[in-house]
Amino acid sequence: MFQALPYEGNRSEQFVAVLEQLKALIHDEPSSIANLANASALLNSFLPDINWVGFYLYDGQELVLGPFQGLPACIRIPLNRGVCGTAAGERRTIVVDDVHEFPGHIACDAASNSEIVVPLIKNGELFGVLDIDSPLKGRFDHEERQFLEQFAAIISKSL
């Protein structure tokens, strides 16, 4: 059973605590969908100032909406289109301080102003992306990027 914990200490210590919670949540669970659902719920409860967090899964042709927390979202995203499609196509993390300045941005929620997308790679293959939106411009910094890349790596191992 999951126990909500107060996140104490400095930010780095809090990130470590969340990564440990993630490992405990997905330990021995074979269902990718269940693991992704719990992972999105964990991030939604931990990260302040976000309005959407979830996963898009690669079906061999495009990204398809997976487990998430937030308002209903775009269902399909072509590779190399928008922030999610670009991160998936280039297989690299993309941080956008102002989504309105990102060429080809796909606006699923008008309240979103910044975004981070981290690819999920397993055995060298694209599985999907972790996508997080915020109503604040410049919401995601380098330290949080590193944390979310570690988070995505743990998730990728469970897939």
Rank of each mutant, 00 (worst) to 15 (best):
R139H: 03
A152D: 15
L19W: 00
A37S: 15
V129A: 09
F68W: 09
Y56C: 11
A107C: 14
Q14P: 04
D131F: 00
N35H: 04
I154V: 11
S112A: 15
A37D: 15
A153L: 05
P119Y: 04
A39Y: 03
E20M: 08
I155H: 01
V117A: 04
A34N: 03
V18S: 13
K122H: 13
P135N: 10
Q146L: 13
E62L: 00
I132N: 02
H27M: 07
I155T: 06
V16R: 08
R139A: 00
P78H: 04
V99I: 11
L42S: 11
K122G: 14
I75V: 14
P78L: 06
F15P: 11
S31W: 01
E101D: 11
P103A: 10
L159C: 12
D59G: 07
N38F: 06
E143G: 08
H100Y: 06
A107L: 06
N44S: 15
S31I: 02
A88M: 08
S32Y: 01
N44M: 02
A34V: 10
L57M: 12
G128P: 12
N51A: 08
A41G: 09
V83A: 09
V96P: 06
A111R: 11
Q61A: 11
S31F: 01
P30R: 07
P135M: 04
I154R: 09
L25G: 15
R91V: 10
N10C: 07
H142I: 08
R139P: 01
T93P: 07
T86L: 00
A34R: 00
H27P: 08
P67S: 13
E125L: 06
F147E: 15
Y7L: 14
N35Q: 08
L79H: 13
Y58Q: 12
A152M: 05
V118H: 02
F147S: 12
G60W: 07
I77L: 07
I106R: 05
F15C: 12
E101P: 09
R11H: 04
Y58A: 10
Y58P: 14
V64I: 14
A87H: 02
A34P: 05
V99K: 02
T86H: 05
A34C: 09
M1V: 09
I154W: 09
A107W: 00
R91Q: 14
N123E: 12
N44P: 08
A111K: 08
G66R: 03
L65V: 08
Q61G: 12
G85P: 12
G82H: 04
R92N: 11
L148Q: 13
P67N: 10
N80Y: 13
L130H: 02
F127D: 11
L65W: 00
L36M: 14
V117M: 03
F147V: 09
E149G: 04
G128F: 01
E62W: 07
E149K: 02
Q150A: 04
